[in-house]
């Protein structure tokens, strides 16, 4: 009879439950959010849940395979993150927006297009913070010099 291990089946089950929760929540975020960055964070969260399960299985069975596989996952996650960031920078330079709905031209054939006005219709209203405006009201002093007025934000074409 081998000595009882601290890492019993009950502890393995705890790890598997936490990993399942991380995986499902990451899947929910990837399916339902529109922001490209949040979508990639959700995908990384799914990888975290999988890595947790693998490490727990490796610890339970007493070999290194789970940890080696998790190292592989770390490598793939690093590659994925670098390529995703490069893609996000490229896509943002083209459309000046992180909305994934703007890229629905590459959707599957036979899927109906989502009109872009849907996003504004479904957006939750911004709640105004109650209370007086806190910026001080300064009296302009002196004479304003003649200068060309430049907008603060230059939108790209």
């Amino acid at each position: 009879m081998p000595a009882t291990d601290v890492f019993s089946l009950d502890v393995l089950r705890d790890y598997l439950l936490i990993g399942a929760a991380l995986f499902a929540l990451g899947m929910l975020g990837f399916l339902s959010r529109r922001n490209l960055i949040v979508m990639f964070l959700s995908a990384e969260m799914m990888l975290q849940g999988t890595a947790l399960s693998l490490v727990a299985f490796g610890r339970y069975h007493g070999n290194w395979t789970g940890q080696v596989f998790t190292i592989m996952i770390l490598t793939v996650a690093a590659c994925e993150a670098s390529i995703a960031l490069a893609l996000i920078v490229i896509l943002y330079n083209r459309r000046s927006s992180l909305d994934v709905t703007l890229w629905q031209d590459i959707r599957e054939e036979g899927v109906a297009a989502t009109p872009t006005s849907v996003v504004a219709e479904e957006a939750e209203p911004i709640e105004a913070i109650p209370g007086p405006e806190s910026y001080p009201n300064l009296t302009p002093a002196g004479v304003e010099p003649a200068h060309p007025v430049q907008p603060w934000i230059v939108t790209r074409d």
Binding site: L25, M27, L28, L31, S32, R33, R34, T101, A120, A123
Partner: peptide, 16 residues
């Protein structure tokens, strides 16, 4: 806008 509007949240929640 796109940060304040989830994409078909009910169906995604049910599936996940």
């Amino acid at each position: 806008d796109y940060d304040r509007a989830a994409r078909s949240p009910a169906m995604a929640t049910v599936i996940s």
